[in-house]
Nucleic acid binder design. Sequence first.
DNA 1: CGGCAAGTTGAGCCAGGTCAACTCCGGTGG
DNA 2: CCACCGGAGTTGACCTGGCTCAACTTGCCG
Lengths: 256, 256
Amino acid sequence: MTRPAPAPCTQCSMYAEAGNFCASLTAAELKAMNARSCLVTIKRDETIPREVLQHHPVMAVSSGVLSVQQLLHDGRRTIAAIMMRGDILDLRHTTAKQLGTLVALSKVQLCRLSPAVFDQSIAINPSAREMALRNITNQAYRAISHASDLAKKQALEKLASFVVECRDRCPEELPLDDVHIPIRRGDLADYLGMQPETVSRSFKELEERGVVQVLDLSHLRVRDAEALRRIAGGDRSVRGSAPFAKAGFSILVADV
Amino acid sequence: MTRPAPAPCTQCSMYAEAGNFCASLTAAELKAMNARSCLVTIKRDETIPREVLQHHPVMAVSSGVLSVQQLLHDGRRTIAAIMMRGDILDLRHTTAKQLGTLVALSKVQLCRLSPAVFDQSIAINPSAREMALRNITNQAYRAISHASDLAKKQALEKLASFVVECRDRCPEELPLDDVHIPIRRGDLADYLGMQPETVSRSFKELEERGVVQVLDLSHLRVRDAEALRRIAGGDRSVRGSAPFAKAGFSILVADV
DNA sequence: CGGCAAGTTGAGCCAGGTCAACTCCGGTGG
DNA sequence: CCACCGGAGTTGACCTGGCTCAACTTGCCG
């Protein structure tokens, strides 16, 4: 039985989207990459086993959301980082153990890059090198900025920060002001270091303040981007321009 | 007036310490780097001004502790990351604004690398390339692991984690089991997302449990490394093997 | 349409934030 | 050399944001 024909790189978002590593490869490099790499699909809540990471320490997220998780002794779970399309992981110098486990938060397409081809491309192709470096650097700075969200911000502020992060980072093309929340409430709670209940209450609060409108569990509409930004920056007193989005209530309240 | 002769790279820890970027440069590269770069000293609590960062977007920490800080609207301060010797910062694709401000937490020696020489070395010298990539990747993974400390851990656990981080990361050569805490209590509080009072109480608690002994404000002795590790991993019930380090108390307590 | 997992809402409680007083220590000047 | 000063750190008492637990509602998939 032959191995299933690898999906051609040309159909992968790592290649298709400018700014990603594979998009900067030459035709020859892409061909080598295509021959030596392999695109796998991971279902939601599946963990990438340690031995797989050891055999394929270099990989890239082609679609979906991959998380770095840590489990505390008594069952508390932390999502320390989320990786999205274009993000490169190089675990050759970091055992997965010290980083945590890699768990898919949605259906994830992951490309196991050939380390040799990866290194080779980085060595000779300046633009591939720049893309890779830029991606890793951005991951570092995103993680730093996430740490700063977690350190001192209150629940509402963390959530506002996260919405802003989604707006900047999520690849989807949506009507202006609509934001796609790519992960579930429970995962979001573990990413922001809070409880699902608190996430829910904070969404409600943002909505009551007229800052966002919750369209469904994975879609928001931003009603007042400036207010959102200011809440994310720690100004908790801010109210949006369209308070009490669910019309009707405001009249009742005003009359009391 | 001639510019003061730049300190030769050979005296800088970026060069002297194996595993750092500059240590992997060839003699010719080092000479180029020496000619085009400049080592500056920054006093504690000084901020690197934005315009300096724009002119010198690539730099490396030679000694001391440099922090990435963010100030919330109402004055809360966060230390999102701390950089120590060997760490490379490349801000060419990240405005300092989105990352935060860079503030020295101790006397810092910072080398402003020439971006051109840096890029050139990375392009042609495989071992320099690997060092740079490895450092950036490690920074990313450290930040991720810091984020996971902040998300769900309690005060005591965060502090234990930090002590472990210091043990692994701090360059000082100290007697086994002694740990150097390179930053002040207030800064530590902002790094761990808590209040100075809580930091103080947590140190006391670790000491009362016999896990560490506080020698002075910047030195600890680890009494039970395994207990420390377990507390850092979320097992809050752990007590050390040498409780009530300040002798005498235990007798009184036992008699009640 | 039924069943289950995910999400939301409400009530009570606690870890850690806040505020104020106190101690410790290093630097400075008489 | 010592008295003084100011900033850092610590301790204690109180308070609150968010965690916990439990009940309920919603949304998803067969």
